[in-house]
Amino acid sequence: MPVNRVKFYQTGSYAVGNRLLDPRSRAVQSDPARTNAITTGHRACQGCGEALGARYVLDAAMRATGGKLVTVNATGCLEVFSTPFPESSWRVAWLHSLFGNAPAVATGVAAALRAQGREDIRVIGQGGDGGTVDIGFGCLSGMFERDDDVLFVCYDNQAYMNTGVQRSGATPPAARTATTDAVGPAPGNAFGQGKDAPRIAMAHGIPYVATATVADPRDLEYKVERAMSFRGARYLHVLVPCPLGWGSAARDTVRLARLATQCGLFPVYEAERGDVVAATPIRAAVPVTEYLRPQRRFAHLFRPELRTDVIGRIQAIADANIARYGLLEAGHD
């Protein structure tokens, strides 16, 4: 486990903080003086995982950089719900250009800062899975290939939620979206090879690639801090459940992110220069059904009949992840 786990103290490092812990051992999110990069009053839905994830990432980045940070945002939910004119929820330097060019704009910001001799100011590019793995992918790959000094963060909620839940390159197999209605006997996204953005990023050989979820803020914060210790192109892929698009209860956002990791469908790991260096072991293994069942986008796998054939294929994906990243091999604290 790369993030330094705290022993004892009832909740160890699983909860955000603990009154018994030294403040330095608590999460950034435990600090009443945290930046609150995306502040109260934003118009995200109840229980929005993306709003939560963005705050976790940017608050940690603000601490890691001493507040010297510029954020470039792609179009998407995160941009729309945070900045309905003339309001803004951002308490960091923030700019938005287009859907597909956030990595390129971030590259430009980094270049401008370098030209001014202000390389102490760091740059984060961020977007949803649509802006990252589909529309902005060419710009992103170029940013990686040039090793520009940008951390790009993808908040992956697995579809185009802002425009009405259309399928994206990150939509998982069998998930129902507005554009994967039944053409044959059953709805749901086709089984394909998918677009595994973190592994594509790793294939560029960039200094640092990591995955994380909103279910483990300490791990997420560690990875942001770690990413900020590198220069060059870095990529962070954060799973952020979406109650609207996933058809889940607002209160279940963190729980679903946790189940995604514990069933193996979303492996949490980090890689340096193209090689995986650490993976977070599964602590309370569950079958994929535990994760799928609370989501209405997978309801057709359970009603009117239990689709053991489809569930079996999804379980096989989880099992392949568990084998690839050794998620059941190491013990936990």
């Binding site: 903080g17 018994l20 999110q29 939560l52």
Partner: peptide, 9 residues
């Protein structure tokens, strides 16, 4: 018991 979880999540 003061774990800060509500404050964080």
């Amino acid at each position: 018991f003061g774990c800060d979880n509500c404050f964080g999540v």
